[in-house]
Design a protein around this nucleic acid. Structure first.
Lengths: 222, 222
DNA sequence: TTCTGTACTGTTATTTGGTACAGTACACCC
DNA sequence: GGGTGTACTGTACCAAATAACAGTACAGAA
């Protein structure tokens, strides 16, 4: 299924907003007026292109005969849902389909900052930050962080070598990064990373990156 | 606001079903055809009656210019939402409209047991159960609890006398109930309630009831 | 008894709206 | 260089749809 062009997306959005505001779809003339076309044929052409790409259905001979398709997914699934990310397949972006375990119906805007994905915490390394084993944390995607923030770090598992997400408190001083667990038990040791040896080395993959910052959590059991 | 007649209800239902099925409202002719009228004026008369009674709005000069009113609740129907309960008006059930501060888009089934409503925690009395000030807890509505469970208890505030929700760990031994905060600081003292004097006393209001059991939480900030 | 509201039929005027045809211009791909 | 797709303008026709006017019939309330 091909994608919509910029203009076609604008027009589809206008149809959506008209449906929301007025309760019925716009006419060709409504669309032409909205976008400053002097002829309704312009609108018609766009509608036929959008229909051909499968985003709407045009009902011939019916005034305002525009039916939105694939809106169930948009309205029910993705607008108010967040992907739960488990393990991360090599070379894929975090939120790639393959990494999504499931979608949970939670409004992303509930978190501050807004959550872009979720991750289920395993283990007790952040216990003293009140993040417990089994909690589902909301992560706001960004590739940098301030000192002292809790970040979702992506790095290979020491044994399996597979990329995984871990939560740690982030500190940076010059080229030295410290990822600190929030558990004072001796088993939990801060991780020190020196960026210096990696500089200019385009072959070697940086073994660590920030996927985002901690934005809150859900604890699904009483 | 007067009620609709049988026929008007049928016609309003037809408009709803057309909107659901086709994505846009019917014309006067669609309605006439559906109900076997030989003239579209019949449909028009009904529409004007339904509009006069406030159930729809007719947009003059617009084909299919029928707008459903009072449909918001029906459409987004709180299916994947939970009410956030603040203070509780005297003599109302917990989840009564008046007690609902807002609706949050969270799937009730995310919690175990299923959450029926949410409550925002104020204060640090449950700190050692890892429930912090500002957390939003999910509550599964039930009027009893097992020993050691965390419950949402409803009782009058000691100063204002207004009913409010507090979280406490619940213990019962015979007629004696203990509501225990999870904070070992000396300011937080267990509350002892003796049910015995209340028995058979129908005049006196029981000053405490269980609204439900703790089913998990959301922490909306990083 | 009259008035008001519901529930229609029948006809007609007028506007709204869909759609076809003929162009122009630009960008990208092979 | 030709083909295809996008992004429009401009004209025109005609079916779709609204809306107004004139009725009929019945039922319940004042």
């Amino acid at each position: 299924m091909s994608d919509l062009t910029q203009r076609q997306t604008e027009i589809l959005d206008f149809i959506r907003s008209q449906l929301r505001d007025t309760g019925f779809p716009p006419t060709r003339e409504d669309i032409a007026r909205q976008f400053g076309f002097s002829s309704k044929t312009g609108a018609q052409d766009h509608l036929m292109a959008i229909a051909r790409k499968g985003f709407i259905e045009l009902v011939p001979g019916n005034a305002r005969g525009i039916r939105l398709l694939k809106e169930d997914e948009l309205l029910l699934s993705h607008q108010f849902e967040l992907p739960l990310i488990g393990s991360i397949a090599a070379g894929t972006p975090i939120t790639a389909e393959t990494n999504v375990d499931t979608w949970l119906r939670i409004d992303p805007e509930l978190f501050h900052p807004r959550a872009d994905f979720l991750h289920r915490v395993a283990g007790h390394s952040m216990k003293e930050a009140n993040i417990l084993d089994g909690d589902i944390v909301g992560i706001h995607a960004q590739d940098d962080a301030d000192n002292g923030q809790i970040v979702a770090a992506v790095m290979p598992h020491p044994k399996t070598g597979e990329d995984e997400i871990t939560l740690k408190r982030y500190f940076r001083r010059g080229k030295k990064i410290t990822l600190k667990p929030e558990n004072s038990a001796p088993a939990y040791k801060p991780l020190e990373i020196d960026l210096a040896p990696l500089e200019g080395d385009s072959q070697e993959q940086t073994p660590f990156r920030i996927a985002g910052v901690y934005a809150g959590l859900i604890r699904p059991r009483g």
